[in-house]
Design a protein around this nucleic acid. Structure first.
Lengths: 146, 146
DNA sequence: ATCACTGCAAAGTCTTTGCAGTTCC
DNA sequence: GGAACTGCAAAGACTTTGCAGTGAT
């Protein structure tokens, strides 16, 4: 049932971590839940603020995110904001549309993965493409009115 | 003639700056020439090192790059290296393929601009898209061998 | 009980800012 | 000459690291 999803996530995330050889700690699971439920990329500061339930140090947040990135559940995004943002890895490929004035972020439907295959085929020096990042920058309507 | 292009650049860049309302200083022109001739995105450190002919402070480099970005001759690129890189804006749209091990950067042919138009059309909240950044991350053949 | 993990504090990068002196127009 | 620009030094933001104590298995 949908109502139970948060509880289920906790167990699911715990297993995920253990199977990858990491311990299932409150901080790691808390951050994973936050990122999953956020729906948009979050900065370290935002993560620290929103994780008020669990006490966690900023240094630990950085270390946890490095681990989560390694496992492949989280990825780093750069929206030219002067710091890294992190987002939960979803099934569907998607990208971002960022307002350069107010920093609002909107999701954009993903490209079909024929694109990356084509890029790899055309390159003579690369053996594999492991990830890609497509970001669009512009002005949102609300900022355009001002 | 091709041999004269560097000289010509100097005058061209000077005019460009003046027409945009900025003064044509040695540092600004030097950085522009560097970026134009580099062919790949450069970090502030690389720019400082390569601009040995002209004495320039790092703080000034940051300020100059902000100006050049405003004018639209240079753009900031983020290759997930923990710092910003800057590259000369060329006529042809192009993107990057970055080796996550050795940081080698290769150019990738640009997407046709139907892509950004389509993204804008599909968004309900955005009024314009002013730029986009597509980066591909992977492993180059030389790193794959190791 | 053991080893991984975390908090705390310190240090390391990258970037911005204030101000006085210099340069371009 | 005057406003714009730069160097220098200091501060600010973001991120990493060392070490001793804590917690998961």
């Amino acid at each position: 049932m949908h109502r139970k999803s948060v509880q289920d996530d906790k167990g699911y995330f715990a297993n995920l971590l253990r199977q990858a050889g990491y311990k299932a700690t409150a901080g790691r699971i808390g951050l994973l839940k936050l990122l999953k439920n956020s729906g948009k990329p979050l900065s370290i500061q935002e993560l620290a603020k929103k994780l008020s339930e669990v006490k966690i140090d900023q240094a630990t947040i950085y270390r946890v995110l490095t681990v989560l990135e390694e496992i492949g559940v989280v990825r780093q995004v750069n929206l030219l904001h002067g710091h890294a943002d992190y987002e939960f890895v979803r099934e569907d490929d998607h990208h971002h549309l960022i307002c350069t004035k107010c920093r609002r972020v909107e999701d954009v439907a993903g490209c079909d993965d024929g694109v990356t295959r084509q890029v790899l085929r055309r390159s003579t020096n690369f053996a594999a493409i492991t990830q890609h990042s497509f970001e669009f920058f512009g002005i949102c309507k609300s900022c355009a009115r001002k």
